[in-house]
Computed example of a mutant assay.
Amino acid sequence: MSRTNPNFRPVVADANPASPISEAYRTLRTNLQYAETDRPLQLLMVTSAGPMEGKSTTIMNLAVTYAQTERRTILVDADLRKPTAHYTFGLSNRTGLSHVLSGQAGLSEAVKESRIRGLDILTSGPIPPNPSELLGSSRMDELLAQLREQYDIVLIDTPPVLAVADAQVVSSRCDGVLLVVNARTGKKQHVIKAKNALQFVQARIVGIALNQTSQRDAGPYYEYVERT
């Protein structure tokens, strides 16, 4: 995909890999790898408590950093409410996840190569009327099984936990969940409520990434969260 595409939105880990922010995302990736002591984090879901916390920016940069390690990586835009991956990577969204889950397309038809070597994208597809039902369907289980076979790392972007049930539905099917929090605007009670909602469905929360920390150009800050 050409960088002159009008829908292209640069991902800092690709556009400026030497920057402090890119290094912070690589550190986040490394810290997540250390969370693999119990089981591999092959399917990792990234979400937030509320909107505008930076979850999509975080997952897209993480996807780039994983691909840069020559691991076969796919980013799945499972935010079937307000998808963004096709805008960021300048891709068509005519066919995507919603088509696969509704049986209108196969995985090979929907997956798209990004401009970044080793990184594929499964865009959301057209917004369906029943996102939670599709994400909780047996077809979703089949899709995740396929992705496990074809990729080393599967990163899944979902809507915020407190907005709709989608994140809870997907989280129980993943190896781990990274919760992104805006350090300036995120509210502690919302983070706790989101954490409890994920733990209610027995999701494995592997950490919290703080965006917009006070240190200039710090990027995301990662903290491990013990399960209770």
Rank of each mutant, 00 (worst) to 15 (best):
R3K: 15
P6A: 04
P6G: 01
D14F: 15
D14W: 12
D14T: 07
N16D: 15
A18W: 02
S22C: 08
T30D: 07
T30N: 02
N31G: 04
L32W: 00
Y34C: 00
A35H: 01
T37D: 14
D38V: 04
Q42H: 12
Q42L: 08
Q42Y: 00
A49N: 01
G50E: 13
S56F: 03
S56L: 04
T58I: 03
M60S: 12
L62I: 05
T65F: 10
A67K: 07
T69V: 02
T73P: 06
V76A: 00
V76M: 04
D77P: 11
L80E: 01
T84W: 06
A85Q: 10
T88W: 06
S92A: 12
L97Q: 11
S98H: 05
H99M: 12
V100Q: 14
S102H: 02
Q104C: 05
A105Q: 10
G106T: 11
V111E: 09
V111M: 12
S114K: 04
L119H: 00
I121Y: 14
L122R: 05
P126E: 11
E133H: 03
E133W: 01
L135P: 05
A145H: 11
R148S: 09
Q150Y: 06
Y151P: 07
V154T: 02
P160T: 00
V164L: 12
Q168H: 07
R173M: 09
C174Y: 00
D175S: 13
D175L: 12
V177S: 03
V181F: 12
R184K: 15
K188S: 04
I192E: 15
K195I: 01
K195P: 00
N196R: 14
N196E: 14
A197T: 09
V201R: 10
P220Y: 03
E223H: 15
Y224D: 07
V225S: 08
E226H: 11
